[in-house]
C-alpha cells in the first residue's frame, strides 16, 4: 500500500475497476521501481559473490590445476592451525586494545567539545581530522615517527629512558603500535557520536544534580554515562567491526610481524588471497572473518538488549 497517496487513493470510485487496478499497481509498483537498481546491484555484487565465497571455501586451489572440491577440509585446517589461533588472538588483543584506549579518550574529548565555549568548534574540527585520512597515509606517518634510526619518537624515548628504545622489536611493542594507530584513527568517530548524545541531555538534569551536591564524577556516572549509552553503543559497534576487519592499517605498519604477533585475521586473509593466491583457503578465512563480524554485532545487540531489560 502506498501510504503517501492514501488521501488520493480514496477518490470517488467512478473509474472502471480495471483502470483502478492499473493505477493501484502503478502506485504500489513505484517504490519497487525506485528500489530496483539498488536491489539488483546488491544482489549481483554482494549477495552472489557471498554465495560464491561459500563455494570457493569448499575448494582447494591448486596451481596450474584449478580448484578441487575438498568439502570442509579448509575449515578443518583452519581450526587446527596454530597460526590461525594466533591470528584470532591478535585480532582480539587488537580490538580490546583499541576500545580500551579510544573510548575513554573519546569520552573525555566529547565532554570537552560539548561545552559551548568559544574556540570549541575549531578544536572539534582538529579532533576529527585523523578520521578523514586514509589508513595507509596515517600508517605512513606513524612509521616515519617510529623508524628505529630516524623516528623522532624513537629518539625522544631513547633519550628519556637512557637506553635505545625500539617499539617494534617485541610482539607487545608491535601490538601497541597497531593499537595506538587504530585508536588514534577511531576516537574521533566515537567522540562525535558521544558528543551528539551529550548535547541532547537536558541541562536541567545537571542543575538538579548540582543542587543535590553531586560532584563532577557523580554527574558523569549518574547522568552523562547512562544517557549516552545508545550513541556509545553505536560508536563501539562501528569501531569494533572496523577494527576486527582491518587489514590495510596493520599491513602497512608491521605486515603482521614480528612472527605472527600482529597478523590479525584481515592481514592473514590479505596474504592468503593476494600474496599466495590460495583462493580456496582465503575464502574460508573470509567466511571466518564474516562470522567474527556477525558475532561482534550479535554480542553487542545482546548486551544492549539486556541493558534495556534491566
Amino acid at each position: 500500500m502506498a501510504s503517501v497517496s492514501k488521501p488520493l487513493s480514496e477518490q470517488p470510485a467512478r473509474e472502471q475497476p480495471a483502470t483502478r487496478l492499473m493505477k493501484g499497481l502503478r502506485r504500489n509498483a513505484l517504490p519497487y521501481i525506485l528500489l530496483l537498481p539498488l536491489v539488483v546491484i546488491l544482489i549481483s555484487f554482494l549477495a552472489i559473490p557471498f554465495i560464491s565465497l561459500i563455494y570457493y571455501s569448499l575448494q582447494r586451489t591448486e596451481l596450474g590445476v584449478g580448484n578441487v572440491f575438498v568439502g570442509l577440509a579448509n575449515f578443518n585446517i583452519l581450526l587446527h592451525e596454530s597460526r590461525f589461533a594466533a591470528n584470532l588472538t591478535a585480532t582480539l588483543v587488537y580490538l580490546a586494545g583499541v576500545l580500551v584506549l579510544s573510548v575513554p579518550m573519546a569520552y573525555f574529548a566529547a565532554v570537552l567539545i560539548s561545552s559551548n565555549r568559544r574556540g570549541v568548534g575549531g578544536i572539534r574540527t582538529i579532533f576529527l581530522i585523523p578520521w578523514v585520512l586514509a589508513p595507509v597515509v596515517t600508517a605512513l606517518l606513524f612509521r616515519t615517527m617510529l623508524d628505529p634510526q630516524s623516528g623522532p619518537i624513537t629518539i625522544a624515548m631513547s633519550w628519556l629512558l637512557g637506553h635505545p628504545f625500539y617499539l617494534t622489536l617485541s610482539e607487545e611493542g608491535s601490538r601497541l603500535l597497531i593499537v595506538l594507530h587504530s585508536a588514534w584513527r577511531s576516537f574521533p568517530l566515537e567522540m562525535l557520536l558521544i558528543a551528539a548524545g551529550i548535547t541532547s541531555i537536558p541541562q536541567e538534569l545537571y542543575e538538579a544534580a548540582k543542587v543535590d551536591g553531586a560532584g563532577l564524577w557523580q554527574q558523569f556516572r549518574r547522568i552523562t554515562l547512562p544517557l549516552t549509552r545508545i550513541p556509545l553503543f553505536s560508536a563501539v559497534l562501528l569501531i569494533s567491526v572496523y577494527t576486527v576487519q582491518d587489514a590495510e592499517g596493520v599491513y602497512a605498519l608491521t605486515q603482521g610481524g614480528p612472527g605472527y604477533g600482529t597478523e590479525v585475521t584481515g592481514v592473514r586473509l590479505f596474504k592468503e588471497a593476494f600474496l599466495y593466491f590460495n583462493i580456496g583457503f582465503a575464502s574460508s578465512i573470509g567466511i571466518a572473518l564474516i562470522t567474527l563480524s556477525v558475532l561482534v554485532i550479535v554480542i553487542y545487540f545482546r548486551i544492549l538488549g539486556q541493558g534495556e531489560k534491566a
Binding site: 559473490p49 573470509g286 572473518l289 556477525v294
Partner: peptide, 18 residues
C-alpha cells in the same frame, strides 16, 4: 544497516572473477 558492517575484503576474490 548490516551490510556495511560486513568485511569488503572477504568478497574481493569472487569480485575479481566477476
Amino acid at each position: 544497516l548490516v551490510l556495511p558492517l560486513l568485511p569488503a575484503i572477504a568478497v574481493l576474490v569472487p569480485l575479481i572473477l566477476y
